[in-house]
Design a binder for these strands. Structure first.
Lengths: 233, 233
DNA sequence: TCAAGTAATACTGGATCCAATCAACGACCT
DNA sequence: AGGTCGTTGATTGGATCCAGTATTACTTGA
């Protein structure tokens, strides 16, 4: 069992923070994580301990704990005696993570589908529609994240959900970049995938849902390999 | 890119420690990790900061960093203002990790096989033979770990290898328990799997190697579900 | 002018000290 | 006797201080 407070997959992408129930390190980590996901920090950007410290009105001790946590999540890279930077991904690493997602997310979906309620599935359909109408990249990203994480929300797993969430977080910045590219190319296959996924889920067809999701992620992976310029500099 | 020193999958199961090149926190984490894997700490056992501190001749500051790292790896469970314990797994969590491994390790093997040299494959065959002859549980565990991690050693991945290693580490204690049970039942299928795997690798048959490995892990998962008593208390 | 060596600076790493919180124990009351 | 409340002890959390290291800038020489 886990004495851990059963952190579920939350839409905002951080382990559910029990408000002030956990130490300053956890709080600082949560806020820095959200800031990175929101794009306020870019990959390669330096993170100084003292800045974070007096930004949160704390000393550097909890900041260092926060950096250790985010390092373990792969969001920051710490070099001893030198400093911490927001992690940067190579094209190869990004492809790797997408291949991992291809294999893990269908499994997580398999856990979740039997527990999804009718109204929850209806909400998924609404999200898929809203994505098609969205014009703002940032808004689309938010909807896309909510859509997929909602399909996983009832999985009831203790480990797999956390792993998938970390993969989403680590690739978040690059997903933002790809969205701009794909959008400019007018590729609509992602939307078709989303609708197919909702239908398969509604019919309770786990196998088809797995296949659609697998191909959805795979297609994105193949597409991103065609845009190595995102990883330059 | 990663400023990280390209930590590869090492047989001893910890991120390659650059001796004294990294801080005390990393060193303490490495030693505590190894102690847990060796079974010197059992799941549920309390880990007091001050004990670790003067065990390593350090203050509690790097100890706390070490605990944060091991918490992120899932080896330690920290409760705020209360303490840290060696993580304990439920049967459901253990099955979950094995299902994850079923999907991830074949992929990692796929990365690795093309880069495995002839002498390395010969060494795998030797390990498979040695496992059949081994009588000591602890010795078998060591060989089994070296065998599988050796098949992954040339994968050249930056993320996947690390994830698989963590899954091995988190399930290490329970693998020890299962080995005793299986051994008493005289089940030899694991040995057959190992030989089949070596042959598939030698022929460069990635697809068959993936299938054999998948079934190998799956069989263990189904078997462990038949022994819930390991997770009692 | 450029290279190399050296000094200054800024940041991180670690230790000690103090405050806050939880657990266990005991006293008191019903 | 049992339960509840308060108190004490042990342990963790956080802040300040000092030491160590890497990087930068500067200086000196060829």
């Amino acid at each position: 069992m886990s004495a851990l407070p059963a952190t579920g997959v939350a839409q905002n992408g951080q382990m559910t923070e029990h408000a002030t129930r956990d130490g300053a390190g956890t709080r600082i980590a949560a806020e820095l994580r959200q800031a990175i996901l929101d794009g306020h920090y870019s990959p390669g950007m330096r993170v100084r301990q003292e800045d974070l410290a007096d930004l949160h009105g704390a000393s550097r001790i909890p900041v260092r704990e926060a950096l250790r946590m985010l390092e373990a999540e792969g969001l920051v890279t710490v070099v001893v005696n030198t400093g911490a930077w927001v992690s940067r991904l190579s094209l190869a690493e990004c492809e790797e993570m997408y291949q991992i997602r291809e294999r893990l997310e269908p499994l997580l979906l398999r856990y979740s589908i039997p527990n999804l309620s009718r109204p929850e599935i209806d909400h998924l359909a609404l999200l898929a529609d809203a994505m098609e109408r969205s014009t703002d990249v940032e808004h689309f990203l938010k909807l896309d994240r909510e859509f997929h994480l909602s399909t996983y929300a009832t999985a009831g797993t203790n480990v797999l959900g956390e792993m998938v969430l970390q993969l989403w977080n680590r690739t978040q910045h690059y997903r933002r970049a790809f969205t701009r590219v794909f959008r400019s190319e007018g590729d609509r296959s992602a939307h078709y995938d989303h609708h197919l996924l909702v239908h398969a889920i509604r019919r309770g067809d786990v196998d088809e849902a797995e296949r659609v999701l697998h191909d959805h992620i795979r297609r994105t992976r193949l597409e991103l390999a065609r845009h190595p310029e995102v990883f330059e500099n």
